[in-house]
Simulated scan of single mutants.
Amino acid sequence: MKRIAVLTSGGDAPGMNAAVRAVVRTAIYHNIEVYGIRYGYKGLIEDDIFPMRSRDVANIIQLGGTMLKTARSKEFMTVEGRALAAEQLKKHNIDGLVIIGGDGSFKGACKLYAEHQVPIIGIPGTIDKDISGTDYTIGFDTAVNTAVEAIDKIRDTAAAHDRLFIIEVMGRDAGYIALNSGIATGAESVLVPERITNVERVLNMIDYDQKRKKNVHIIVVAEGDDFGAEALTHVLQNKFPEMEIRHSVLGHMQRGGSPSYYDRVQASRLGYHAVLALKEGKSQLMAGIINNEVKLSPLDEVVKKHQSIDDDLLDMVKILSS
């Protein structure tokens, strides 16, 4: 392994820069040339590839986003697009590839390997924490902390006015941000896409709380919940017209910001071990963290299933909010 490349793909996540930095400096330490690929698979196809040196990743560990940029690529979804991507790697004599991204990025990586045998190590970079084969994904910790800070501030207003707030957080297919931020902020209800929303239970809870003079409510809803925050707002307004009900969407603020110390450290660990795996001739694996140890899992198995929601945490919400 004389020359490797690194790219970030899919949605950006705080901590991606820490992983890129670790990949570059670990490779250089082991006398491996390292190249950066801008704009993910799109940049790979378009030959937006450049050599990276240690100084290129100086002063980026504390920055959110990704210095390599990221983009979606419809062309890479085609056989012809992946053939062109493989051709670009061969042109630059690149022996291995580190891909930092989520489920969609890894599915593309599996096809690239199957069709062109490009050695690949994946690093899970997604705020949704929906990747199997790992307890941790880059950006999740920062995203939850961002959501918690925002919900805490909203609760102050809710308490001042005796209001009910429905707060939508990110998580189209996974409710881990909603679940963890809801528990951390003492939310009265948490609704996630992994479970069918029991609207009647929510209505009964609010009715019960009103009878015991509890007038402040925080309901955290993942954006992918089957019922939806906006629809729930309308239902509650019709059911409780005397209540002040507000709907707040946190949106993309959860993706940005300086990564937490935890995201910086764990992303660095994964970048370091990804390079070591390529150096040892390993391929078609994802570097993840299980029980605080770095483990390598087959990429084709990782993409077959999502990280399941924690039933114990869901039970905790019901008990602790009573």
Rank of each mutant, 00 (worst) to 15 (best):
D130E: 07
N198F: 03
V20W: 01
V235W: 05
L276C: 14
E188Y: 07
Y41H: 10
A58K: 11
P119Q: 06
L299M: 11
G102A: 01
D152T: 03
H234L: 14
E280G: 08
V6F: 05
R264L: 03
D162I: 01
T66D: 06
T185I: 04
P51T: 15
A277W: 03
R82N: 01
A159Q: 12
D128C: 01
I290D: 15
E200W: 13
G224Q: 05
R155I: 08
G139L: 07
S268M: 00
Y35T: 08
V220H: 09
M52C: 02
K305R: 11
K107L: 15
G11C: 09
G281P: 00
D263A: 01
K42Q: 11
L236M: 12
G271R: 11
G224C: 06
L278G: 03
E242D: 15
Y262V: 13
A229C: 06
K74L: 14
K214R: 12
G122R: 12
F227Q: 12
Y136Q: 14
A184C: 12
T134V: 06
P193H: 08
V216N: 05
C110M: 10
D226W: 02
D56C: 04
G65S: 04
I49D: 05
H161S: 09
P124V: 10
I61T: 11
R255L: 03
P193M: 03
D263Y: 00
D207G: 06
M1L: 13
I28L: 09
R201E: 13
Y39N: 14
V235R: 10
R195I: 15
P51R: 13
S283E: 11
G43E: 00
V235L: 09
H306M: 12
Y208D: 13
K69L: 11
V202C: 12
L84Q: 14
G228E: 05
F140C: 02
I206V: 10
A19G: 08
H217T: 06
L320C: 15
S181W: 02
P241L: 03
S260V: 01
V169Y: 01
F240H: 07
A277M: 09
A229R: 04
K318S: 14
K2T: 10
A277I: 01
E242C: 06
E230Y: 10
G43S: 10
